[in-house]
């Protein structure tokens, strides 16, 4: 992974009337990584994406995509960026192939090359058999897959996917996530906007969480997890029948325990590694009857919920 930046924004701001949708946003996406842009509805994700593409003008601030200023040189940006909008639509009266051919034509791709690429991308999304069907007859999921194919026809350096998995069935989602996870190896950077946390967690190396137009947190998933879990990477819950007074202090002394909270009979312990055996030994040594013990790794949900609880 290089340290070259695919996307860089500086104090990016956009207002609609008096409402500030994106507020002095600063974030960057490294080349060849999958970046997840998270946030509740109305957080300014789509507006940010439109500004990245030069489709909407920022009120102030700057956005650069592969060193091109999106506001000043939108065409150069659009040549290398593939964008899948949230509500993707196609020309109903044209077949899948004709729709793709039109997009290839707009990108000045030579006709012989176009046909080859169309077959390639349709194969990739599994629409080879439906290629000569008019898109009017396509289901929502098929349209979504055709949208993915459409993004890759121009062989982009960066793809921006806005809620790409909506409307897909579980196997479709898996297939798509596999495709996305494989893109960095092909030299393609991905910006994935979503509120499907587990999907983001599965494929993204870094995430940024947007709330009310501001980036509340940005970084790699590992780092964020550590922060969200108050330093620990694991959360171990211990339930005892009769908690003894000294137990908390004993567990605190175990190496690797970062934080402990007592809540009635339940102890919540954050640790930096899986310390279940040491903890259970401590509990048993303390004569506190162990009822159950659960371990869970942090998930993006925890990070997400933590930040939205705080705000």
């Amino acid at each position: 992974m290089t340290d070259k930046l695919a996307i860089e924004t500086k104090d990016l701001t956009k207002n609609y009337g008096k409402v500030t949708v994106v507020d002095r946003l600063n974030f960057h996406v490294k080349e060849n990584e999958v970046f997840g842009l998270l946030g509740p509805n109305g957080a300014g994700k789509t507006t940010t994406i439109l500004m990245l593409l030069g489709l909407t003008e920022p009120a102030s601030g700057m956005v650069r995509v592969f060193d091109f200023n999106s506001t000043r040189e939108p065409l150069k940006v659009k040549r290398i960026v593939g964008y899948l909008p949230e509500e993707v639509g196609f020309y109903d009266n044209l077949t899948a192939r004709e729709n793709l051919r039109f997009i290839a034509d707009l990108n000045n791709i030579a006709p012989s090359e176009t046909e080859r690429r169309i077959d390639e991308v349709l194969e990739m999304v599994g629409l080879t058999e439906e290629r000569d069907m008019v898109t009017r007859k396509f289901s929502r999921g098929m349209k979504q897959r055709l949208g993915i194919a459409d993004v890759f026809i121009k062989q982009p350096k960066l793809v921006i996917l806005d809620e790409p998995t909506s409307g897909l069935d579980p196997s479709g989602i898996n297939h798509l996530l596999d495709i996305i996870a494989g893109l960095p190896k092909m030299g393609i950077t991905v910006l994935l906007s979503s509120h499907q946390l587990y999907q983001v967690q599965r494929v993204c190396q870094s995430v940024g969480i947007l709330s009310k137009g501001k980036m509340v947190i940005e970084g790699s998933i590992d780092e964020l997890g550590r922060e969200a879990m108050a330093g620990g990477r694991f959360m171990i819950e211990v339930e005892t029948a009769e908690p003894k007074a000294g137990l908390v202090d004993i567990i605190k002394k175990i190496e690797g325990v970062e934080k402990i909270e007592a809540d009635g009979t339940i102890l919540k312990i954050s640790t930096d590694s899986d310390l279940r055996s040491q903890i259970s030994k401590a509990v048993v040594d303390n004569d506190a009857l162990l009822v159950q013990m659960k371990v869970h790794e942090f998930s993006l949900d925890d990070i997400y919920m933590k930040y939205f609880k705080e705000n």
Partner: peptide, 12 residues
């Protein structure tokens, strides 16, 4: 039809 944003995200 949802084609406008797709069309305008092409280099035109």
């Amino acid at each position: 039809g949802g084609t406008l944003s797709r069309l305008l995200s092409q280099p035109v």
